[in-house]
Write a protein that binds this DNA or RNA. Sequence first.
RNA 1: GCCUUGGUGGCGGAAUUGGUAGACGCGCUGGAUUCAAAAUCCAGUGAUUGCAAGAUCGUGUGGGUUCGAUUCCCACUCAAGGUACCA
Length: 1131
Amino acid sequence: MKYNFNEIEAKWQKYWAENQTFKAENKSDKPKFYVLDMFPYPSGAGLHVGHPLGYIASDIYARYKRHKGFNVLHPMGYDSFGLPAEQYAIQTGQHPAKTTNENIKTYRRQLDQIGFSFDWSREVRTSSSDYYKWTQWIFIQLFESYYCNDANQARPIKELTEVFSIEGNKNINAVADDDIEFFTAEEWNNYSNEIQQGILAKYRLTFLSETEVNWCPDLGTVLANDEIVNGVSERGGHPVVRKKMKQWSMRITAYAQRLLDGLETIDWPQPLKDSQINWIGRSEGAMVGFKVLSPALSKGKGVRDAGYLTGNPEIASVLLEKAKEMRANPTLAESTLWQQLKSKKLDIKFRQQHLIEEFIVDFVCLKKKLIIEVDGKIHESQIEKDEQRTKKLENKGYKVVRFTNEEVIEDIDAVIFKIKNELKNREVLPLGKDLGWEIKVFTTRPDTIFGVSFMTLAPEHELVSEITTEEYKKDIEKYIDVTSKRSERDRMADVKTISGQFTGAYAIHPFNGNKIPIWIGDYVLASYGTGAVMAVPCGDQRDYDFAKHFGIEILNIFQDTDISEYACEDKSAIIANSDFITGMPAKKAIKRIIYELEQKGIGEGKINYRLRDAVFSRQRYWGEPFPVYYKDGLPQMIDVKHLPIELPEVEKYLPTEDGKPPLGNAKIWHWLEKDGIGKIVSKEEFENSSSSGRLGGALELNTMPGWAGSSWYFNRYMDAQNAENFAGDNALNYWRDVDLYIGGSEHATGHLLYSRFWQKFLFDKGLVPVDEYAKKLINQGMILGTSAFAYRWEFENGDTSGKPKKTIFVSKDLMEKIIEERKAVENSKHNLDNDTIDMLATSERISDPKNKWSHFTPIHVDVSFVNASNELDVEAFKNWRPEYKNAQFVLEDGKYIVGREVEKMSKSKYNVVNPDDICADFGADTLRLYEMFLGPLEQAKPWNTAGITGVYGFMKRLWKLYHSGEDATFYVSEEEAIKEELKTLHKTIKKVDEDITSFSFNTSVSSFMIAVNELTAQKCNKRSILEPLAVIISPYAPHIAEELWSKLGNNESISTAEFPVFNEEYLIESTKTYPISFNGKMRFTMELSLDLSKEEIEKAVLAHEKTQQHLAGRTPKKVIVVPGKIVNIVG
RNA sequence: GCCUUGGUGGCGGAAUUGGUAGACGCGCUGGAUUCAAAAUCCAGUGAUUGCAAGAUCGUGUGGGUUCGAUUCCCACUCAAGGUACCA
């Protein structure tokens, strides 16, 4: 009987479907195992051979786990919202739902045909309202939550409003927008709803905000950072510009640290983890404020205004002397009070006789900006002076509290009580808010602060226009104009050019009071950190280059370090010339500087992340609608009981003429709710309804991005039919998480980051049992196409005949030969006569020597016209395109040979291989086996259909093993197996077991081949061998395995069979063929008993005649014997 | 630039803790079968050299450790992927 794969495969696919063989139960005595594939976007093109690679691997694993006694969940679904369906709808007017459904049908047919063991009863589609109902629900949960830093988790927003109404927000430690201002309970309670909502939006985990977004005019939508490649859209390569828009955002930044920490707990590929780490971009350092000298004064006229916190640098030295003196000779009252204040006795640092501007104050707490003055007997004249002084200090944001000597001496407790109270009630506004300008910078090297010799702001920095002096205004404007015209792309491509412009303004160094020129430069990015840097030329190469270019001073603050050529970015260098940190290594200096900054209240240790909040709005039709309507311009969540909010019908899928998203075309898109009954109505109906007790308004016009639905689908599979919950508790607690997740690495910073974020959020809310949803992840490599090329001869200038040009294709080797000959002619040009040189001079080839194809243009040829020996089916090619109809072909040996190149599989490269064809020609089992046989799962590899015959031949030999009866009918013998046969079987069991556990499926395919080759040679037809063989092969080639299994007399599916157990006994050998090597080189082998001792082996080997031959009379210096491995003779 | 992964025959790729480099398959060569082809089966196939037995070289390059290195260490180089004036 012939191996009729078509019949067998159809039969078993039908059987599995009818018997629901792979349906998983949410309850079992067996241990659970969840194998997940990244669900596909059902594109119109269908599957090509690259798509199923990961599915085959996961299917093998899932089937293997079933054999091993696990309750396996192996689901599949569709990520069915997305751009292509919408683009297609725009072009054809077809509803995206329709084309999506058709595409899904194709996908399903193709998937079924490969024989996957999916539990289709759990299928999910992100575009189905049963599913996106819960996507909307999760969105609402995010809206109703904020991130509490103290609890380090998401908490209900209700908690916030409760606290606000009792004590304002001063004690709230939550992740929020940067521009949060403090307010009291009273203020909060008096705010209008609008203001309250505005404030809450700064805390919510999803919030509406005016953000600068990547706007793609050609696609009419906003794109996420990871949807942009090299400054153009990933899809279609359209230009992208920055634009401000009101958008929903997700506060993923709240989870930055946990997303980072979580990576350590999961078994994911290192490169993938690295790109997430990179993307999150944590850097530790400090935030430092630099005060700006006011422009009017920084030109050198007059005195400095708002300056540095402590002393005015110009008179500081004089004052410091005086302060010292005063510290040494305190009055009784002063020393009494100091005893109570010093050493953080009140839990906060006070300084005595401290310089503030031109004053010396008695005591000051810099953090709270509280000054304590102790006065002697007050004279009239003093009062006026003191008042002036107080006023001035208060202008700087200080509060001055005065005590008399008597008060201090007589009742120190009362004084301390009063001070404590002052401290408690004092709220210090962030520095610089009302004190003139301050430039905040983030630096990872605060230890190099004494090396700062200039500052650079991004041209877009908000302070640029404020601080620029008259003198430099024109230059600055010109510079900004020039840089804004350069696209992001230009700026990125051109990193070598140094450009910048001085603003005319200066900042003051927070420690030494030096004047620091402020520049702007486009090497500083507005979007990272604070958009400003403190430039340390000696410690940062970019700053160094900038300083050199503009002749700015370069200070050296490293001990014994030469910085005449390059900056020193080495953290091990010892700090020098840096006041109190001189002599310290970087690590220590950083700590000290941060401490000082915090003491002075001018900076703090800070962890900065590159990760930005994720924009969540898309101006598309084919996506999840938001469960949101607007009332008085404020977004309102629709009560969850009304979900889903289904996509409305529109006439056109394009944006509206006034630039609104496609949903702006919907006629019926207003929310109307009354007495708890809600519906979507037209604008007219809404406006005509009575407004009493009415809720509602215009619905949100944006839709959710592609990653919304894919961020939680793995949880839905656990309980896909649940109508009450996104998944039931029992199911969630039973399946918990994915044990094995297989998918492409291209999702590293998109789906795989967002889904982790949502999972952590759901975990915080107690909705899922684990905060990392996939324990192990494997990236399957891409299968590349092998493109084929025909080489078209290009006519040269000399062709003046005027006749229509002929199309001539030259076979590959001939073409190469021609090129080589021409090269040879050229290279020996000096030996040629004038006529030949003239002829060559007119040829194109010479004018373009770089391009070796300049005579020939490679044309992509459909790979289906080419056979395994790279021979082109000329007739098929001629009929392919009208322009090739009359083409001529220059052949070699009567054949046209094409060139080959490995490229990404793509329609436009005509190198796509369809799995349907493979299944029809060789069968699904062969396809599965071959895809695994190609190479390691995680590696990218080219597809070459030619090799499939080897696997197909193997399948036929496997079939034959079971069909050793007359006329090749099915026959197995019940005889007992002999040792050799058992050995073959058991070493295969062992190998396959190990291979599956380590995901090296390619090597198990070879061990199957070896096993079948050996058993064929042994003429083995024994049941005791062939039955277990069918089981171990069944995860890979399930159809043939089922067929053989049933022929062996089993009534149940082979998937219920137990995986055979490896028995060491059958592999035990009594002898070993020892390689005998001389000086490490193997010369011959010798069969010896494994029972022999080292000495006996050595003796036997030395006695061998070949040994004597090789030694040629010499005595070996040393003989290394590793029993069971090798013998090496040295000498 | 940085991070990651990798470099083995004509090709895809094997090779436990360092222990016979090139498993398995493709391709190629020769043979059997056939009127012929397909299919199938058998033999050979890293390079150089030799009639042969054999010898020499050989895992990107150069060095090192070792009785012995594709495997470990150092330096370099090339390729692929990620990322980027990230302060």
